[in-house]
Nucleic acid binder design. Structure first.
Length: 186
DNA sequence: GCGTCGATGGCA
DNA sequence: GCCATCGACGCG
């Protein structure tokens, strides 16, 4: 299976966030390959989006977001969790999509539901900062079965972002049981 | 089932 | 001082 091509990522972050649902995130970091079907994403749409790290400007941390689409943006939050994002949009426009949850082969859903847990389960770290996801090396994405229905909600953990806190830029596979947060009752 | 809180480190 | 989080704990 071939990696998603550059032009998949060279669209607005919201479109990419939706299109990423159902795709397969693949890592080959140790000797073993791990595959996970993405079921939850969030779009961070540019420097004007107060929840987007790029709103702080072009810094050593945010630099990759200002570059070409299809590269990994990985960073540390709360001193302990590494979060995996993909850079989107035209070169020079700072956007990214955070991958928040996935369904992983042979793993209970709760171990890959939540952005910190997902990156940990796949072995993604800050060493992957700036990695070209179109190069199919260590971390990449492949086509996968799209969701039957997509739901949109506000993004998680961005209450500081003023009007942008309420923007419906979180997208989930409505029928997945691996979405982060509350489990469906059953 | 809920709300609250501590851990922990890079960053501006 | 602030976080794009998580898990443990206390409550009842």
């Amino acid at each position: 299976m071939s990696a998603l091509p550059r032009d998949f990522y060279e669209r607005e972050a919201e479109a990419v966030a939706r299109a990423l649902l159902g795709t397969i995130l693949v890592t080959r970091i140790g000797k073993e390959e791990r595959r996970a079907r993405i079921v939850e994403t969030e779009a961070y749409v540019g420097e004007h989006d107060l929840a987007c790290h790029a709103a702080k400007g072009n810094t050593p941390r945010t630099r990759v977001m200002f570059g070409r689409a299809g590269h990994a943006y990985v960073y540390l939050v709360y001193g302990m969790h590494e979060l995996f994002n993909v850079v989107t949009g035209p070169d020079g426009v700072a956007q990214a999509v955070l991958v928040r949850a996935a369904e992983m082969d042979g793993m209970p859903a709760r171990h890959a539901s939540g952005p910190g847990k997902l990156a940990r389960a796949l072995g993604i770290t800050r060493e992957d900062y700036g990695r070209d996801l179109c190069a199919k090396r260590r971390v990449w994405l492949e086509p996968g079965p799209p969701p039957e229905a997509i739901a949109a909600t506000p993004r998680i953990g961005v209450d500081y972002a003023g009007e942008w806190a309420a923007a419906p830029l979180r997208f989930i596979d409505a029928s997945s049981h691996a979405v982060s947060g509350k489990r469906p009752r059953g």
